[in-house]
């Protein structure tokens, strides 16, 4: 059984993510620092909260997090969790984790914000996380910001909300989704399984 950790910023529902991982036969611990991260095969940064408080809760772990990514421990960042991979966000004043070059910007206001509900995936490139996921699959989004990676090759799928919203990013063992796989019914479960498979390696 693969053992993974969810980082808890103390600001929202991580219960659904935990249930989803457990349904896919992972052993899950909820952690609030990265001191014992070597005991786990993968880390999840959940997608609930606000940028600055979440970054503050990870602050003392920032160097450990960067090491973890260098050492290729698989990490899945969901929504805010993915946004924190980048250097900065318009949601907050504090710097991000900075493991990816680029920034996080507010969605254009020609449509309603937050972008909330089920939207379909346009798959752009082959991706480990998207193995077995069909083009046009519906996934659940709820966010007000989007990521803008410097290297666009890491965007594996996007979704149309007046503009192309990067929906899946992936580079080596670093994975991110703007939508919530744990809330995206069966399709989301496939992605959770794909992530856990990477953790097992």
């Amino acid at each position: 059984m693969v053992k993974v950790a969810i980082f808890d910023y103390g600001a929202g529902n991580i219960f659904s993510l935990k249930s989803s991982l457990e349904k896919n036969e992972a052993e899950v611990d909820v952690i609030t620092n990265l001191e014992k991260i070597k005991n786990y095969s993968g880390l999840l940064l959940p997608g609930v909260g606000n940028f600055d408080p979440a970054i503050t809760s990870l602050h003392t772990s920032k160097i450990q997090f960067q090491d973890l990514v260098k050492n290729q421990i698989p990490v899945l960042g969901i929504c805010l969790g993915m946004e924190m991979f980048f250097e900065k966000s318009e949601e907050g004043k504090l710097g991000g984790l900075g493991v990816l070059e680029g920034e996080v910007i507010l969605l254009p206001n020609k449509f309603k914000i937050p972008h909330m509900g089920w939207n379909d995936l346009q798959i752009k490139k082959p991706s480990v996380l998207l193995e077995g996921v069909k083009e046009g699959s519906w996934v659940y989004f709820v966010h007000s910001y989007r990521v803008k990676p410097k290297n666009e090759d890491i965007i594996k799928a996007d979704s149309d909300y007046g503009i192309n919203v990067p929906a899946v990013i992936e580079t080596q063992t670093l994975f991110g989704t703007q939508f919530h796989p744990e809330k995206s019914s069966k399709v989301g479960s496939i992605m959770i399984q794909n992530f856990l498979r990477v953790c097992k390696k």
Partner: peptide
């Protein structure tokens, strides 16, 4: 609530 949990909640 928005400042802690984000407006989506």
């Amino acid at each position: 609530l928005m400042e802690i949990f984000g407006k989506q909640c």
